[in-house]
């Protein structure tokens, strides 16, 4: 039953794949390799390694963890800084008045424009990529955290005062959890932005990573390799988003259910 339902939902995917295969095979355009060719190139590039390496190749082991490491360290850093600053902004109307224009300006700068600057400041390498990612993705986290912290239910705060919560308890037990649903919305947006910025920063200045492999394939006119890298990045984006949603559902279970029942 379950299988049938899934099949009923996904029937178009194989149809599209077959149509793509047929169309590219008849057109024989070197720019558009058939999906089977792309798949075998992907297998060759990343998944034909020895069994003790989980069938991952040298290339996969060198580039994929590197890229993921950049995404996660950038995301983590932006998360910590963004949440801390955001909560300060949300709880202090005065502070937010003073820095609001700076924030509006900072978030309006298209992050790739900063690449050459960071390239000059940090030289090619992980530092520069992480700096770009942090700068580019911190804004949604910061703005959501400040919005969430600003709109804490007044009665929650009064309850905290009435029972004499300390400042730390007030922050960790009341303000932060209240702002969490908003913060998670920001974190999710940031995660997909982090992927984009990881790719662009590796395309512009890197000697390893999936973005670098993509550029390498493009420079050597390896079309299936280019397509394969794009597919790999798409899969990565899908997995990251799905994993995040699953984590969010677990952590914020109180929020979803609480809002349904009241």
């Amino acid at each position: 039953m379950r299988f049938l339902r899934v099949a009923g939902r996904l029937w178009l995917v194989p149809v599209v794949l077959v149509a793509w295969e047929v169309a590219t095979r008849t057109a024989e355009d070197i720019f558009f390799p058939p999906p089977t060719v792309i798949a075998s190139r992907m297998h060759e590039l990343w998944f034909s390694g020895p069994a003790q390496h989980l069938w991952l190749t040298e290339g996969a082991l060198e580039n994929i963890p590197t890229s993921l490491g950049r995404i996660f360290s950038g995301w983590l850093l932006a998360g910590v800084i963004g949440i801390a600053l955001g909560i300060m902004l949300g709880r202090s109307e005065r502070f937010s008045q003073f820095v609001d224009p700076i924030i509006q300006f900072g978030r309006a700068i298209p992050p790739p424009a900063l690449l050459p600057l960071f390239l000059a400041l940090f030289a090619i390498g992980t530092q520069m990529q992480v700096a770009t990612i942090v700068f580019g993705i911190i804004w949604p986290i910061l703005l959501n955290a400040s919005d969430g912290a600003r709109h804490v239910d007044r009665l929650h705060l009064e309850t905290a005062s009435a029972f004499g919560f300390s400042r730390g308890q007030r922050l960790m037990r009341v303000i932060l959890p209240s702002a969490m649903p908003k913060i998670f919305a920001g974190l999710r947006l940031s995660l997909s932005l982090a992927l984009i910025l990881m790719v662009i920063s590796e395309l512009v200045g890197s000697t390893n990573g999936i973005g670098f492999q993509l550029l390498d394939a493009q420079r050597s006119y390896d079309y299936p390799g280019v397509w394969g890298s794009i597919v790999l990045l798409g899969v990565l984006g899908y997995v990251l988003n799905t994993a995040f949603l699953a984590a969010e559902r677990r952590i914020l279970s109180w929020h979803r259910t609480a809002n349904q029942t009241t």
Binding site: I200, G211, L233, G234, G237
Partner: peptide, 13 residues
């Protein structure tokens, strides 16, 4: 989920 910037190298070709 495909990061759009990844399409730039392809588009260049």
């Amino acid at each position: 989920p495909i990061p759009s910037v990844a399409l730039i190298p392809l588009a260049l070709l």
